[in-house]
Design a protein around this nucleic acid. Structure first.
Lengths: 339, 339
DNA sequence: ATTGGCACTCGGTTGGCGAGAGTGCTGGAG
DNA sequence: CTCCAGCACTCTCGCCAACCGAGTGCCAAT
């Protein structure tokens, strides 16, 4: 009983099941793949694969379907990379390069992934951590309300409201703005805290409270907790006939709405190099137990990962195709993005 | 056959069907509502209501369910306003006031609507039209790439990429920024175009092209087509058992992804005063034929509508509750928002 | 105008049956 | 030792018939 033929059988099962979405039996298998052996032999191999926990049968008289473990082995050892077609690559390139701003880039990347994979796309906004501060703007809005706008040199913009004492005049504001901007010029985000401290200390007493508040808001806005913005696309794909989940759509949709937790999951599974795949129960989120997640980091062309993008679909997904799509979009995205 | 009792019957049918999600027959109706008449009489009324196209029966031996027209009459004449409870109002208030920036306000409003109504929420970002320009920032990113950031005095921030000739030095950029900002100071958006023209004309020849490009980008960014941003929330509610659509979720999810079209629909149905309801086939979008949309404008406290928020659910929805929730959130939102 | 009674319709459920697919096992051939 | 043909067994699925119950429409009586 040759080991490699057993793996051929597993590969055949995965491919057929992904395509037809029906449990695959020994007869069909020998008909559709040139395995060179009879159904009976395949049955023996199947028994061994089932023993090893790689496949299972839904009911006694049905064919086999891969388990999570089976998919894992398929992805790690059996799947052959299938690069995108030239038209596909070109479509990615032009579609991304037509974006008018950062929001649009992220949105377009999501739509691309969703359309290429026929699944749900999740795209994280580029992270702030490594950025420098480009400009700080203070805008009075309602009375007693101040809008603080932070522009980083990666092109990301954060805004925060701040409650301030009423009766604050424009002159004070202008001075504050000028001082902060001067202090921050050319500094990395990590150094801004101390630079701002010096500014607040130098302020006259009656404005120091305001200055401290602004400084606090800015550093908070650039801190970790604001790196949570993600965008979803292609949720309609969940309702396609090809995506019937045992438990229904609910747990999946709920998991997708828990953006903070979802982002945590994606962050944890993304390693620095290339595309990562998390299959079925490997996902920490119970709601994603019937799905697989394919993620890749993206970022500046020098390989730094500043954010994540991923595709989520049923465990029975086209892994090679999805991996290729995610990788390709991540690459072009890294190129288009302001470094 | 009294006319008003017939309407009582219609109201009872709507309320029962919304609650139980099952066609309601004459017997049940007399048991659960004190109509003071026998099932047989109710049957006569039902026949008349069906004749009028207000109710229908799915199959011959089933109870009646309201038609779109029936819901319409219910909403217009029969529904009693049911104000939110005090705890609910308080929850809205505190939850909205905890928002840290504009994004957060919009996101929180969406989550509120979704949670209060148990349906899908759509919230449009405040429109730019009536804003003034507060500050213009030019940020070089990659070589040959310029980021243009526009901050309006309503607290909204728009960003655009711009391809520029390489080898452009920081000094030019700084000068350009200063001139544009000076030109725009205190002007409404409609006047900025001409103000910018004067700036570009005054520029030395070798920088005029750049200046023109920047001016074009800014005016375009503030133009109509960029008012399209909306945020969805509570899509997981679509998968709840209480939302079974005949046609499945697909058309609904697809309609929600067509954000441009969706926003057009919402804009068209929102009139200046209060909450508007569009029921079933009244919706232009075919995908929303089985849903009803409840929208309200919101904006500054002086009554101007700067954006829209709405709740989308099955035609069989709790209209009074949904209307109350949408109205309440719109009101608090108008109060919290920078004017 | 209202109501009780009654015959009728029809969808949903149940149970039984047969067909088909797929398996595991066994014994024999290479 | 590997492979394979055959066979008995199991289980799902689709089909059909029968039944049940809910609800209706109509009619005659009040």
């Amino acid at each position: 009983m040759s080991e490699e033929r057993r793996l051929d059988v597993l590969r055949a099962i995965v491919e057929d099941y992904v395509r037809t979405r029906e449990p695959v039996g020994s007869r069909i298998l020998t008909e559709r793949h040139r395995l060179g052996v009879s159904p009976a032999t395949v049955r023996n191999d199947m028994a061994a694969l089932e023993e090893a926990g790689l496949i299972a049968q839904p009911h006694t008289s049905a064919g086999r379907i891969p388990t999570d473990k089976g998919y894992r082995l398929f992805v790690d050892q059996l799947a052959e990379v299938r690069p995108l077609t030239v038209p596909q690559r070109r479509a990615i390139e032009t579609f991304l390069s037509e974006a008018v701003d950062l929001d649009d880039v992220v949105a377009r990347a999501g739509r691309l992934i969703a359309q290429l994979t026929g699944q749900v796309a999740v795209v994280q906004y580029p992270s702030l951590r490594r950025s420098g501060l480009r400009h700080l703007e203070l805008v009075p809005t309602a009375e007693g309300r101040l809008l603080v706008v932070v522009i980083t040199d990666t092109g990301r913009v954060e805004q925060r409201f701040l409650d301030v004492p009423v009766g604050m005049d424009d002159g004070t504001l202008g001075e504050l703005r000028a001082r902060f901007n001067a202090a921050a010029a050319g500094h990395r985000l990590t150094e801004i805290g101390t630079a701002f401290e010096r500014v607040t200390e130098a302020m006259p007493d009656d404005h120091r409270a305001l200055a401290t508040a602004v400084a606090a808001v800015v550093t908070a806005a650039l801190g970790e907790e604001s790196e949570e913005r993600i965008v979803l696309a292609g949720q309609a794909n969940l309702a396609r006939s090809s995506m019937r989940f045992e438990q229904g759509l609910r747990p999946v949709l709920e998991a997708l709405e828990e953006q903070v937790v979802l982002l945590g999951l994606l962050t944890d599974m993304t390693d620095d190099a290339g595309v990562a795949v998390s299959i079925g129960h490997e996902n920490r989120l119970a709601g994603l137990a019937e799905t697989s997640v394919v993620t890749s980091g993206y970022g500046s062309s020098d390989g730094d990962t500043v954010a994540i993008l991923s595709s989520i679909g049923p465990t029975r997904m086209d892994y090679p195709g999805t991996i290729a799509a995610v990788r390709a979009v991540a690459r072009y995205l890294s190129r288009v993005l302001p470094s």
